[in-house]
Amino acid sequence: MKNTNNSAKVLVPLTAGLALMVPLFLGNNYYYDIFIMAGIYTIIGSGMNLLLGFTGQLSMGHAAFYGFGAYITAIGMKSYGLPFWLCVILAVGFCFAMGMLLGSTSCKLSGIFLVVVTTGFNTVVNLIMVNWEFTGRSFGIPGIPKPDWFGSPMNKLQYCYLVLAFVFLALFVSYRVVHSKTGRAFQAMRDNAIAARSVGVNVNKYKLLVFAVSAVYAGVAGALYASNIGYISPTSFTSNVSVTIITMTVLGGLGDLCGCIVGAVVVGVLMEALREFGDYQLTLYGVLIVVILIFMPKGLMGGLRSLYRRLCSLVSRRRTPAKQEEV
């Protein structure tokens, strides 16, 4: 236990420092975009991880929240000339409310029932996006401006750091939530909702809360996405995207805070690396979900952790053979 704590003390600043350094060496817009997408996926993945990994609720509707964030930012910045930060706040508020609304179904439903309802939610939201004049119908919204940075629009490097700031904030909030009373309540609910209720956990309150919070994560990710890419259309927010979000959460490791970083980076980079084989991409995601679930139930991060532990024990055994014999 002490060992892992010590390693966390080294690893967290190391990873953060590395993440801060990376944008400086990327050099061109293409690599900036990959970096930004990996950051956006980390945010949305850590929201999904709170919901699926820590409370065990499966939502197929997160692409809808992602879409809310993106559309609010696009319409706010383009049509009403609002500043970016205000759009983010609006997106946060709206997604929180919608998350509560969808989350209220999760108080009574779980498993497949929740999947059916959230899939339906995503379908309806996508239908509205495709058919409403206000959201640009199926053409979407082009020409979304970048946020301002002291009077001039941000360049890609600055945007990388903006995304990174949100990533740090998202991970910090997740960390604080998971290691609090609330987080322990979440995990108790995941393991056994009735038992949790019987020891005084207000299950419905926490279910609403976790749904709303993870919806907010998705909304913030959507806001960052819209402003970076400059053009959004309903096809970016179908239930396929929800599957991608679930893929990276499972890939990284359910209930593992670092997992969503690994999952997001792997999926973000894979998506680009497999661009040539665009058709194979989603097939591969499906195969990845199945293979990871069967062979690595704790995800890539869980695999890495057990590898690290094995290495540590190997090293310590070499170093102190005498002590081992004493015991």
Partner: peptide, 23 residues
């Protein structure tokens, strides 16, 4: 294992089938 994992697995299978059929 847990039913949630099985459900996730069927979602993965459905993604595979859909896109394999497309290929």
């Amino acid at each position: 294992r847990s039913r949630t994992l099985l459900l996730l697995c069927t979602i993965g299978v459905s993604t595979v089938l859909r896109n394999a059929a497309q290929l």
